[in-house]
Design a protein around this nucleic acid. Sequence first.
DNA 1: CACGCCTCTGTGAACGTTCACAGGCATGAG
DNA 2: CTCATGCCTGTGAACGTTCACAGAGGCGTG
Lengths: 340, 340
Amino acid sequence: MTPSPGRKKRATILDVATVAGISRGTVSRVLNGEPYVSDEARAAVNKAIKEVGYVPNMAARNLVRQRSQAVGLLIHEPHALFLEDPNIGSIMLGANTVLSQAGYQMVCLIIDSELDVNRIGQYLNGGSIDGAIVISASENDPITELIEQLAMASAFVGLPPNHRPLPFVSIDNKKAAAEITARLKASGRTQIGMIASALGRAAGADRLAGFADAMGSSYRPEHVAKVEHFSFDAGITGMRELLESCPTIDAVFAASDAVAAGALSVLQRIGRRVPEDIAIVGFDDSVWAQRTNPPLSTVRQPASELGAQAAELVLAQLRGEEINRDGVYLETTIVWRESA
Amino acid sequence: MTPSPGRKKRATILDVATVAGISRGTVSRVLNGEPYVSDEARAAVNKAIKEVGYVPNMAARNLVRQRSQAVGLLIHEPHALFLEDPNIGSIMLGANTVLSQAGYQMVCLIIDSELDVNRIGQYLNGGSIDGAIVISASENDPITELIEQLAMASAFVGLPPNHRPLPFVSIDNKKAAAEITARLKASGRTQIGMIASALGRAAGADRLAGFADAMGSSYRPEHVAKVEHFSFDAGITGMRELLESCPTIDAVFAASDAVAAGALSVLQRIGRRVPEDIAIVGFDDSVWAQRTNPPLSTVRQPASELGAQAAELVLAQLRGEEINRDGVYLETTIVWRESA
DNA sequence: CACGCCTCTGTGAACGTTCACAGGCATGAG
DNA sequence: CTCATGCCTGTGAACGTTCACAGAGGCGTG
C-alpha cells in the first residue's frame, strides 16, 4: 500500500542517521557545521544526506531555535501605487543583497486588503520571521502599531507613521525639496509652483514644507496644487489645476518623477515648451526621469541604499546591538538635466 | 533575575488554557473554529487570549500539520530587469488577491544571486511554503529542477523552461506576435523590421517566431535586430542596429513596450516622425505604452489575470485536484494607439 | 432501566529538530 | 599507574502545536 499518490514522505534527520549508521546528534552537528565531528562521520553523513535526499525541516528547526532566520519586507501600498513606484524595486534588491549575505531569507509580504492585515499580523508574531522592514506605511497603520507592541526587530524605510519612536532610514525630504526649489529660483524663474502629493505621508508633507521654506516670502498658496498620490495621473490633474489657478506659471516642482512626467504630458499637449516656456523638476531620479523628453531634472534618492541600510538596522537589532534611535538619514543629490 | 531585556516570552496555548481554566485541547478547538465547544468555554478562551496576548506559533503548527498555509512567489529575474518589468507588479497583486482570499499567505522570494539559490532551495523544501508560483525562470534554472524533483504544487507564469511538463499559465506569444505583425502589414507598411529580445526565453523566442510566421515569404533576416533583454536600453541598441542594416525601414515590431520606448527615443532623436515616417508597435500594454509620445500600439497582456490563474492552479493542486497538464493560455488583445 | 447517541472535554503521542548533558576513548603529564 | 584533558558520540528533553482517542454526562427511546 503506497501512502498516497501525492508527495512522497520527506526524509528526516533520523533517516540520515540510520543510513549513515550514527546518531541524530552527530547528524545535527554536521548540518550546523559544528566542530568536534570526525571526518569519517562527516563524510558518512554527507553521503547519507545525498542518498535519502534530505532537506532540513524549517518548521522543526524554527520551533526549537525560536527564530526563523528570515526577515519580512512589508509593502503596504495602495494597489496602483505599488505598480508605479520605481523605488520599491530598488529598495527590495538593496535589502535582499544585505540579508542574503548575512544568511537571512528575505520574504516580501504585500498588504493589499483588510484580509491581509490580519493574516500578516499572525505571520509577524507567529515566529515566521525574526524582523521586519516596512516600506511606505501610512498614518495609523495597524501593522506599525503591532510592530511597536511586539517590540520586534524592525526598520522603516521613510519616517515611521505617527512619529512613533521606531528605527528608520530615510532621506531628508524637506531639505532636498528646499534645495531643488532654490536651484529653480536661482535659474531665474519667477512664478514657481508645486504639485504636492501624498500629504498624508511624511515624505509628501516634507517636500511641500521644503518648497515653502525655500520660497520664503514669495510663497503663494495658490501656486500649490495638492493631489493624492505620487502618480502619473495625479501629475496630470495637478498640472491642469495649476495652469488654471496661475496661467503665467514658469516653473513647477513636482513631488515625484511620475507626477512630473504626468505634468509634462499636459504641457506638451497644450503646446508649452519645456524648458523654454516652463521649467519642470521632479523627485526620485527614477526611470521616469531619464526617459521623458526632455529628461527631468530631479533629486536623486539612493533607493537601494535605503533598503540596504534598513536591512543592516534590522540585523543589528537581531545581534542584540543598541541602535541609533534617531534614525539614519541618507544624502540626496540634485541631478540637473534638460527639463529645467 | 529577568530572563533578558529583549522580547518578553511569548504566551503559549498552555498559558491560555490555564488562565481560562480548561485544557489545551479545547483551546486548540476554539482557535481552529471546530464544532463541539461550549459557548462558555469559547468565551473563556477568547478572553484569556486577549489577556495574555496570545498568538499561535506558526512553526509549531506547521510542524505538526505538515503544511504552512503559505505559497511562495519566486522571482528569478536579472537585477535590472526586475526593476523595469511592468508585469511583475500586476502578477504579484493578482496572485496575492486569490491566495489571500483562500486564506493563504503569499511570500515573495527574490532570487538575485547564487547565494539565494541555495537558501531558496531550503526554503522551498523545508516546509515553509506549500506551493510555488514561479515568474520568469530562464532555461536551465536550478530552481525549476528542484520543483520538479520535489513534485511540489507549482505553477509557472509563462512556459516552464526546458519544456518541463509543469503546470503553467501563459499567453500565446507566437500567436499574439503574428497578429500584431499582420496588422502592421495590413496598414500598408512594406519594410517591416523587428527588435527581438530575450531569445533565451520562450516568450522572446515565440514573439520572433510569430513575427516570422506573419511575414511569410517577405521575412528578411537582416530586418531583425537581436538584443538581450526586454529593456529600454536594449531598445536603443536594437533600433540603431536596425537603422544601420536597413535604413529604409518603415515599421518596427518591438518585443516589449520598454524596447519600443527605447526605439522610439532613438527615432525622435534622429528626427524620424512616428507614425508618419515609421510605425512602431510594442508588446505588454504596460505603463510605457500609454506614456510615450505618441502612445504605443501594443498587445495587451492580462498580467494580473496571469497571476490570479497561477494562484488558482497552485490552490487546486493543494486541494488534491487533478489539473490540466497542458497549461492554461489566456487571451491577448491588440490595443491600437497612435504609434502605428 | 438499559442502551445508544450526541455534545463536550481532557490526555498522550506525535511532528523533526536542537541543545545540554553524560560518557567513552585516546593521549600525555605527573 | 592515575588522572586530567581533549575529542567525539549518543540520548533525553524540550519547543508549541494538532490530532486521535477515550470518556463523562445528558437526553431520548425502546
